[in-house]
Design a protein around this nucleic acid. Sequence first.
DNA 1: TTGAAAGCGCTACCAA
DNA 2: TTGGTAGCGCTTTCAA
Lengths: 343, 343
Amino acid sequence: MKNSPVTIKDIARSLNISISTVSRALRGMPEIHPETRNAVMKLAEELDYQPNQLAKNLVKSRTKTIGVVFPNLSYHYFSAMLNSIEESAMQAGYSVLVTQTNESYVRETVCIENLLRSRVEGLIISLSRDTVHLDHVEKLMKREIPVVLVDRTAESLATTRVIVDNQAAAFKATEHLIKQGCQRIGFLAGPARLVLSRQRIDGYLKAAAQYGVVAGEQYIRNCDYTSENTIVQTLSLMSLPQPPDGVVAISDRIAYPALYAMQQKGLSVPADVAMVSFNNEPVSAFFSPTLSSISQPIAEMARETVRLLVHQIENPDEGVRAETIVFDTQLIIRESSLRNGVV
Amino acid sequence: MKNSPVTIKDIARSLNISISTVSRALRGMPEIHPETRNAVMKLAEELDYQPNQLAKNLVKSRTKTIGVVFPNLSYHYFSAMLNSIEESAMQAGYSVLVTQTNESYVRETVCIENLLRSRVEGLIISLSRDTVHLDHVEKLMKREIPVVLVDRTAESLATTRVIVDNQAAAFKATEHLIKQGCQRIGFLAGPARLVLSRQRIDGYLKAAAQYGVVAGEQYIRNCDYTSENTIVQTLSLMSLPQPPDGVVAISDRIAYPALYAMQQKGLSVPADVAMVSFNNEPVSAFFSPTLSSISQPIAEMARETVRLLVHQIENPDEGVRAETIVFDTQLIIRESSLRNGVV
DNA sequence: TTGAAAGCGCTACCAA
DNA sequence: TTGGTAGCGCTTTCAA
């Protein structure tokens, strides 16, 4: 038989005092007589009393909770960011409720609805791959629910945003390949509709144009983030009559199967093809060849995201300023792009 | 100015009907007049009404929520399992609340307390690396709160458990190395107090003994899961007067830096050292050399875990049966352990 | 088919 | 320093 949880009422009855007194004692209010307090505390301990957070939140109509809507926690990028978000939130006295969209627009709307039902006070969202309509986010804004978009954002949305300068980062990566002597540069992109993918392509095209190397649509392949597809796209790219001698991949998760496919095809990296990608996952440092990658300041981004959100939550009358915070990235150069010891 | 969320009371007032009627209409109870229902639905839609889950749960004293306590979601193993848990839970009509312990015993107790405050109806726990005392879990059992331990369990705990046969898996991995011609086999273990680490060591020792190859304490190194330490331990292992020609690593996350360290040292894998590890992370298939690894049926384990937990939740009077469900593992053989085309 | 009222566990106000 | 009471938003009897 499951004994239902102890309530303050139980404690009050046992001690022959009122529930208000118990409530006050438990919360350490100063006006309570030490003796009473001790008795309450002791009994609470004995009965292993756990305050009912639901009831607490209901009456205060505050949950001190923020909701996180991420595409998928098995991407290292998001799980690492979640870790930092939790830490910052805890420091600010908030707890976090996490949901995963699995890159689906429908699940994204469901996740957001569920979080609202649970009365989170604000949301941190990274849009899913398949999110085309933005009505669900716009609705949040209309209802004046604090929202911060991080990493995967939408340009048309006037929310607060925390991102990196994707175009500059891609420029930097491409430029690096060019300086390593690459003449024709390919790009393994993500799904075409991902803003982030488009931005990185822009940076890549800009660098190629500026330095006058071969690049462009015929050197771009869109991958859907599965390794099978990535291998197909990589082989397609490397089978061009004039295959690239340098490739930028949109993420390490794309780069791993791509490197594998190249090596299977007998290409040597970086001698035949130099490679740079994005995200700098921990494994990249141990891959063979070790993988050059653009590193994002995940922890700082998380901190800033939480800071901005909490500020919005706690200053509702200020309105949304719709700031966009842009972080710088860092190119970590490793073997996969290093051709002759020259950086 | 933040407008507070719409409640059924607001709807009732607008429509000049009672809140009970609104409540019933919203929940689609059959006795409501279609006209009334339509009016309610329409207004709810217009006002973008979101039911307050806190209030709902409070009155029903059921949350239909299960709590998950995992060491760290940036381990692929746990994030993959979380994904499957969420899916199974959703199918069973439950939602999940996730927390991370960051491998700390203290945070583990805090996570559990928070989940209980949020009135989760059951818990799925994978113990943290630093968990030595088990009083917090025992307390849960005494309070008859449904708990299922998964993967990282404790032998002394009479909870329901879902695990793999770690000893058999390690035996299988070691045996495979032996059949590939390895004479001296090393083991890169996890922290000494991890039960799972001990079990895998046992399997390794058993196989070595059975086949009469060199192995044992001087061939075992405990890694703390940081890559720096793993590299140190690997180099220490490979610097033995008679270094191993085969190594079992306790997880892919340990194997990656280990492989890197070996290659840096000029050792060729698998020619000089063959290598097998555990977890079969997606990257392992693309590593160079591709990494042989023990694969666990994560999705099935998650399904079974949820099934067992939900059963306990919904049949409280049956008591805890403290079953231990043991899943089989599969050795995925790749280049890192394949010496001469012979499996 | 609808409404009134009690109550889930808690906080907070007003009195005492 | 304490108790009584109202009410957070909802569901659920019991009556009408």
